[in-house]
Computed example of a mutant assay.
Amino acid sequence: MNLRIARLHHPVTALGPGIRLGIWTQGCSLACPGCLSRDTWSAGPEHAVPVRSVLDWCEGHAADGVDGVSLSGGEPSEQPEALGELLNGLAERRERYHWDLLCWTGLEEAEFAARCPAAYGLLDGLVTGPYRAAEAGGGRWRGSANQRLIPLTALGRERYGPWTGTEPAPDAPGELQFQVESDRVYVIGVPRPGDPARIQRALAQRGVMLDGVTWRP
């Protein structure tokens, strides 16, 4: 089975606790205004990657001190069968390596569970709700105040419990990472209000001008 993939990255330290594997799916019909990941909205056959290849990539980093896997997008729930197969393989590795599995969705919890029942039953945590620019500035790992971080297992409660409230934990400020590939710059993490504009100004001061698909309208 294939899964439409936007990118894979290791190490990720800005989307969940510890050092993580990052998997971004390609394709999102929600199209939330102000989304930082507009490049993941459209999807085509060129984005298809065998689930087995993604699992092999994860396995290849197992010895690198990985604490968990973060799945974002795009909208992962728009590929329910492939997402379930991926999470089934990751759940096997969770038992072996003590990884936790955390997923972001623009749906509410009940909607995600109904659309992706197999995936929902394998996750340790779920960040739910559409991004709302007017409510920008949610809690830890959430872009807007309407979004919720929901632990789904004992492992999820252990690892995400300190950050399930609406305010970031005082000892864990927000963090962003930057991934540079050829002529592209990717932002990893959940920016605070005003961060995208600050990033754009900082890049411009270094002679880097943004073009193509970004968070801008």
Rank of each mutant, 00 (worst) to 15 (best):
T128V: 12
G27Y: 06
W104K: 08
N146V: 04
A119G: 09
D67H: 15
E46P: 01
Q26D: 06
I150M: 06
E81N: 08
F112C: 07
A169K: 00
A202E: 03
E75W: 06
E75C: 09
T164N: 00
Q79V: 11
P173Y: 01
L101M: 09
L83M: 14
L210R: 02
I199M: 00
A14V: 07
D195N: 06
G156T: 11
G44F: 07
Q26G: 05
Q200D: 09
E92L: 14
E111N: 02
R38K: 14
G194R: 02
V213P: 05
R7H: 15
E109Y: 00
R94G: 03
H47Q: 09
T105W: 05
A118Q: 14
V49T: 15
C58S: 12
A82H: 08
P80C: 11
A134T: 12
V208A: 02
D100W: 13
G194K: 02
Q205N: 07
Q200A: 15
G129D: 11
G22E: 09
N88R: 15
G68I: 07
V51S: 07
T153P: 10
P117A: 08
G139F: 05
P117S: 08
E75Q: 10
M209E: 01
G22I: 08
E85W: 06
L30F: 14
R20K: 08
A113F: 01
E75V: 06
G60Q: 08
G156K: 10
E175V: 04
C28M: 09
G121E: 07
C58Y: 08
G189W: 01
G16V: 11
L86P: 10
P217E: 15
E81Y: 13
T40H: 14
G34C: 08
A63E: 12
L122R: 15
E109C: 03
D56I: 04
V127Q: 08
T13Y: 13
A62F: 02
A63I: 00
R93A: 12
A136P: 03
D100R: 10
P193Y: 07
G174D: 04
R216M: 12
G143W: 04
A134H: 11
G212K: 06
A119D: 06
G129I: 11
G16Y: 09
A204F: 00
N88I: 00
Q147A: 10
T13R: 15
L176I: 01
S70D: 01
G138M: 13
L126Q: 07
P217G: 13
R132H: 12
R96V: 13
H98N: 15
P173W: 00
V51K: 06
G18I: 10
A6I: 02
A91S: 13
V190I: 14
R148I: 02
T128A: 04
W141V: 04
R184V: 09
C32Q: 04
R140M: 02
A118I: 08
E92V: 09
L155A: 13
G161N: 12
A43L: 01
G84V: 13
H10N: 03
